[in-house]
Design a binder for these strands. Structure first.
Length: 299
DNA sequence: CAATCGTGTTTATGTATCGC
DNA sequence: GCGATACATAAACACGATTG
């Protein structure tokens, strides 16, 4: 069964005649007969009760309805293919870690959508480690993540440091300090994310390097949920500033001294796969828009 | 008016060959 | 070993003439 014979069938219905359909489609009348015969054989049903005037069978009425939808779908597909060829449509798979996925990507994507309104973007939110794996397996076109275990087939372009500060209830003793130093955190019960979280690993490493040992009170897997636990008074937490601006009611954000290295976030891409025009454009737009102005930390 | 027939043309498929 | 190309053959298609 091909679309051509369905189109012929629809044209026959439109004119109520094999002859007229042949004229409109520039076929010989015998070709129309042959096409209908073939279509009926393939479908295993009679579509048209021949006679004057002919009548559609139940199968014919069903095909008349479905055939229209099929042809419309095909037209849409054709339009999308044309757009794809012109570089105006397609599907881009982006991965992002938190907090960039929630706090940066929605804004960074806006100019891309303005430029390519017909491109479909899917956003997958995962840990950096998982994102890099997905880029390597060609399951993502681009990923916004940290450079965790980057294999040689994956390229990483550093873009911005995700700055970290300490969030605490405003009644906390340290809330009066101008800023916080790492040794002050040693005996403070902290709320932390999972062991795989790059932010947690960064803090642990920096404290370890200085011979300090953090004290943990509670592990919360979702970084975006941390601030609510701080707000509820469970303890203090080192959080990306972007997640807690402005700090929730009843909490304050304090800069932390000695944090000379914030986590570097960037774009990961598969070096072995060709990059299309749309993906290239998205890359440069993200490159330009993922950075943001430094925001003041509340005193 | 649609179906059938004979015929020429186009398209699809299989095979062999070539170059990398 | 693999993909590109050329060629032969089969199958599908479209046509005009003709029939019922």
């Amino acid at each position: 069964m091909d679309l051509r014979s369905i189109k012929t069938f629809q044209t026959i219905i439109k004119h109520g005649s094999f002859q007229k359909a042949a004229e409109e489609l520039s076929y010989a009348q015998s070709t129309i007969t042959m096409q209908m015969k073939k279509l009926e054989n393939e479908l295993g049903v009679v579509l048209i009760e021949r006679g004057k005037p002919f009548q559609l069978t139940e199968a014919g009425r069903l095909l008349a309805l479905q055939g229209d939808l099929l042809l419309q779908e095909f037209e849409r597909l054709q339009e999308r293919m044309d757009a794809l060829v012109k570089g105006e449509a397609g599907h881009i798979r982006v991965g992002a870690m938190e907090p960039a996925a929630s706090y940066r990507l929605p804004y960074a994507l806006a100019p891309f959508y303005e430029k390519f309104p017909r491109v479909n973007v899917s956003v997958q939110i995962e840990s950096s480690r998982k994102l890099i794996e997905m880029v390597e397996a060609d399951e993502l076109d681009l990923a916004i993540c940290t450079a965790a275990n980057v294999p040689t087939t994956v390229g990483f372009l550093p873009l911005f440091p995700e700055e970290v500060a300490i969030l605490m209830p405003d009644a906390h003793p340290l809330a009066n300090e101008k800023d916080i130093s790492l040794p002050q955190l040693e005996n403070e019960p902290m709320l932390i994310t999972t062991a795989a979280c790059p932010f947690r690993r960064n803090i642990e490493k920096q404290m370890r390097d200085r011979g300090l040992r953090p004290t943990y009170r509670m592990e919360i897997s979702n970084m975006l949920a941390l601030k609510h636990y701080v707000q509820a008074g469970y303890g203090i937490a080192a959080v990306p500033i972007r997640c807690v601006m402005p700090p929730p009611k009843g909490t304050v954000l304090k800069a932390i001294r000695l944090f000379e290295e914030d986590l570097l976030v960037g774009l990961a891409e598969n070096k072995t796969k060709p990059f299309g025009r749309v993906a290239t454009s998205l890359k440069s737009i993200l490159q330009k828009n993922l950075r943001y102005e430094k925001e003041p930390i509340q005193k």
